[in-house]
Design a protein around this nucleic acid. Structure first.
Lengths: 337, 337
DNA sequence: CCCCATATGCTCAAAATAAGTATAAGTGTC
DNA sequence: GACACTTATACTTATTTTGAGCATATGGGG
């Protein structure tokens, strides 16, 4: 057991590690969930869009979150609302085409939400609809066709392409669980699990060296529909963020972090559906949101609905003192079972 | 927006940061949840027990989790089952008595579970019941008396000791939410929130410089019942781990990571209660565990019960392919509301 | 055989959920 | 101004899930 004191704690770590703070800054605008990406543009392997990041200043920043807020404000002018540490990404070869050598890059990933209104576009970056990165995650209009037509057959091929039958079985089971092919339906929260499986199966561009990947048997062509690739492992970081947010909206009122101060219940529903990637039952949604005390009427109405004017609501802050897990009720699963 | 390439990503970070991997290794034995601590002994400020940690080797370790497993096995001989990254702790002055200077210590914290049987005691370390660190977290036999008698009055005093009324209100609300003083009951998952509040209020030894802390008004004496202090911010890391585990057992079958391969339902219940810190309704527990397909009978019985012999069960691995969120049903709240 | 302890099976009311039907209140068309 | 159309909102109903308790089973010890 290591009982060494602080003075000899430094191992190889202190000279060969580079630490930065990466941010998945998300919002919902025009009913679409979006993340802020830098240099989203051409999309060829050399200049893929990437997450914004900033240095961590061990001298200046009292906490890492403080450091993050500092450089985000400096660089983008955005005011972050909800901020939460996601995960620390430190796998070697985070860029699979990179070679060894040089200091090991470590990113402490954060997820942050900003309000639609404040979601201006900082120079050199853009708000990208996150379902362009993960087309299979958008179930708002039903099961995505590309899932059944592209992903599922390729995943099955990958599983069956395993050498021994044990690996085969394990791959099948993982695919079943992650994508809900078996008895169980689609679990919206398992975003990372699905992305990692696709990565392993060589179905997303990041895992391919040159658009193709050797799966042990055949070369599978990376299908162009498998979403926008990002720099290094950044798409993986976004997947982690989406999964976290989808879980979080259920028991914390984070959805209001992307809403304007007043909104209609249908707007709230749209935003929730955008994050959750799943359609919601309108009447039940409003009943629950109201009966749980998440919102209160402002007294005004919106006539921009096209039909009967909708009452405007605001977030009712007091709910956090009344409800154990104040969040919007979105069912965990849809589909089979 | 920072668009710099990898080569100039290194900021001030690469020379003045020390990265290590800390582990909250937990188990349940004799119906008590425990964490592995190094040098648990005298308990005076200079030699407080601490979490085991190890270096991260940027040259050798492909992933941080791999690095963690490596040194844990090397140092302790334990075989880790469930391992999950917790949080990366990088606040300055993680040791409040420390001064500035030297490289900034950053710990990537992990939580791991080991099986009771394998929970031998590595030299120089011991399995400490985690409720000795957090006496207020153990509600298995009802609301802890020290909560009402010690913590609550001191927290209220701290809140009311704030200068302006806004701070006062905010402190009261935070205490209400974290400890469930108001309408809402005790939310077992908010372990970290509670610890941080106690820390801010100067009620745990780590936040005191010399056993007393200046709260802006009076000096509040740190009560000896407020739990075993650990080295630096390690108790905070354990609090994070407990909160995470309590949440996790609800939707992932991690509880089985601490169980032997065969067990009675009551043993399973005891282990669940140990982690969750809350008593469970026996009949309902077994009904749910069985009807969700989490376990299956082994065919054997245990006569060590003292009464009617209990059937032995084993974890039914297939449940992960059948159930959306396979975990033990423990209610989120207890008490008021 | 009776008592005690624990295990296990079953009932029942209350609460939460899911999915619908019905009605209200605007806009635009003719 | 009647009518179609749109969206908002209220209410109903069946089903499932929970929470809590009662009853019975099955061992050991006197």
């Amino acid at each position: 057991m290591n009982t060494s004191s602080k003075t000899d704690r430094s191992g190889a770590a202190d000279v060969s590690v580079v630490l930065d703070l990466s941010a998945v800054i998300a919002t919902v605008s025009a009913d679409e969930p979006r993340v802020l990406l830098v240099d989203a543009g051409t999309g060829d392997a050399e200049s893929r869009p990437r997450l914004p990041f900033g240095p961590f200043d061990p001298e200046g920043d009292r906490t890492m979150e403080e450091g993050l807020r500092r450089w985000v404000t400096d660089q983008t002018g955005l005011t972050l609302g909800f901020v939460e540490q996601l995960y620390t990404f430190g796998d070697r070869f985070r860029d699979p085409s990179a070679q060894a050598g040089g200091p090991r890059p470590i990113s402490v990933g954060y997820v942050a939400l900003v309000r639609q209104a404040s979601a201006k576009r900082p120079a050199g970056s853009s708000w990208v609809e996150w379902y362009r990165l993960f087309p299979w995650e958008d179930w708002r209009t039903g099961s995505p066709t590309m899932l059944a037509e592209v992903l599922k057959p390729q995943l099955i091929a990958w599983a069956d392409g395993a050498e021994d039958s044990k690996t085969k079985r394990m791959r099948r089971e993982r695919a079943d669980v992650a994508f809900g092919f078996g008895d169980l339906g689609w679990d919206a929260d398992r975003v990372l699990e699905r992305y990692e499986l696709l990565y392993e199966a060589g179905l997303v561009a990041e895992s391919a060296t040159d658009g193709r990947i050797n799966t042990g048997q055949d070369q599978i062509e990376v299908h162009p529909l498998t979403g926008l690739p990002l720099h290094q492992d950044h798409r993986r970081i976004v997947a982690t963020a989406i999964g976290r947010l989808r879980g979080k909206i259920r028991y914390r009122p984070v959805i209001f972090e992307v809403m304007p101060s007043a909104f209609t219940l249908f707007e709230l529903q749209r935003a929730t559906e955008a994050l959750a990637g799943t359609p919601l039952h309108k009447q039940n949604f409003r009943r629950l949101v109201a009966s749980e005390g998440l919102v209160e009427e402002t007294g005004q109405v919106s006539v921009e609905t096209g039909g009967r004017p909708a009452k405007m609501f605001r977030f009712r802050r007091d709910v956090v003192r009344e409800r154990p897990a104040p969040g919007v009720r979105v069912p965990r699963r849809r589909g089979a079972r």
